[in-house]
Design a protein around this nucleic acid. Sequence first.
DNA 1: GCAAAAGTGTTGTCCTTACACCCATGC
DNA 2: GCATGGGTGTAAGGACAACACTTTTGC
Lengths: 247, 247
Amino acid sequence: MMKRPPVSEESSSKRLITDAGGLVASYPKVPLTVDCVIFGFEENELKVLLIRSDLEAYKGLWSLLGDNVKNNEELDAAAYRVLKERTGMADVYLEQVRSFGSPKRHPGGRVITVVYCSLLNIQHHELKIHDNELHWHSYASIKELAFDHASIMHFCHEWLQKRIQEHPLGFSLLPDKFSLRELQNLYEAILGVSLDRRNFRKKFASMGLLIDVNELEQDVPHRPGKLYRFNFEKYEKSKRKWIGIDF
Amino acid sequence: MMKRPPVSEESSSKRLITDAGGLVASYPKVPLTVDCVIFGFEENELKVLLIRSDLEAYKGLWSLLGDNVKNNEELDAAAYRVLKERTGMADVYLEQVRSFGSPKRHPGGRVITVVYCSLLNIQHHELKIHDNELHWHSYASIKELAFDHASIMHFCHEWLQKRIQEHPLGFSLLPDKFSLRELQNLYEAILGVSLDRRNFRKKFASMGLLIDVNELEQDVPHRPGKLYRFNFEKYEKSKRKWIGIDF
DNA sequence: GCAAAAGTGTTGTCCTTACACCCATGC
DNA sequence: GCATGGGTGTAAGGACAACACTTTTGC
């Protein structure tokens, strides 16, 4: 059993550091970047936004959207700025996923990167900038990326798989109005499984978070499905508390 | 609908950066640290390891265990080193939780910190070093901490609440042999709820991951409970796959 | 024998799964 | 009318929540 050590006079009167700035100045410094893994969904496929790498060392390879973090810039702000600068898009949701800082991950020397993930609706967010051949790639088709970006992207995919089952993130990948089929396709694409259509519908119906907008799909070569919107208001009011041991 | 942009000759032959080192050298640099939030469990209370802050600016306040990351040191390795240097402990499990990098979080200037969380058995890991009055504090009793460490600690507590329901992390906080009561106390302390004893027992019994070691509690002033060990082997073999939309 | 906590079973409800048939539309 | 996918209902099984009594030990 551990005993709480007495607070000795000696230790509590130990010399304190007054020059905090000097202390910090003595720390090793590293370049810091943010990278954004931006997922979209189109034609029943999960997609990711990539650009061509600028580096000769990764000639021809694609990479994530990133940039260094400016002095006095919040990490979140840096991620939003990268997204804005690279794609012209604002009004999207970004979430920090994890940091990667292996000394060997960048050929130019050590660079730490804080990775953010974003999910967005390809139809509703037109790419306004196409520098470095920015465009959407099918997630499944991506093989090699510059740096450690492939493993970062896969990490984010796993994060997304988990996240989308606990939070209604998926709706930001869909049009405002969507059919249940589209919603199910999204889940199947992200989770990599196939789900029973009737049970899937029942599940979402019982949540009571879908608003029937009384419209039907257009231009489909079969019976058109009903369109719905997600009830974000109702969801915000009644977020599920999570008690349920399960492993 | 988004069109894939043609790969123009112009853009694909754009000048590439050959001097990766020069590029990285041009990035702003920031001091990088790791901080460890180390949870333990004793006397039915969740506890956290803290030290006295060295800084005059935070005189008398407690802080998390941290240090700067050395050149060419992996982030994970830095976290393990901090733990070893501060407490003398090795053989513990550490997991990266999140990074915090607000420009104002350190009085000496901007410092980015990557936060790791660790859970350990207070009885099995004796503190070998007591610099800066290192000792265990009851989580519930902690009010103010140096830097942004209180909010970091609360973030880790929420992370732990979620994590412990999905993975059998809790067992690393208990002795090798424990009673079901101890296990339940642990869950109740971390989750901040009270649970039905019979249902709790049934839940763990049905998982089949507890090994009855045929021993009883000693020195308790009432009927002694049976002792169990966690079957890590069996758990490793049959990790649950997680499909279940629920929000 | 009294206090304190261990140990145990049943029942109802809800959620999940598996599964089959009719319906609306375009061609 | 036929192909395609939309839309619905039911039954069985499993998980979870609520709940009360007997047992063992120390004192």
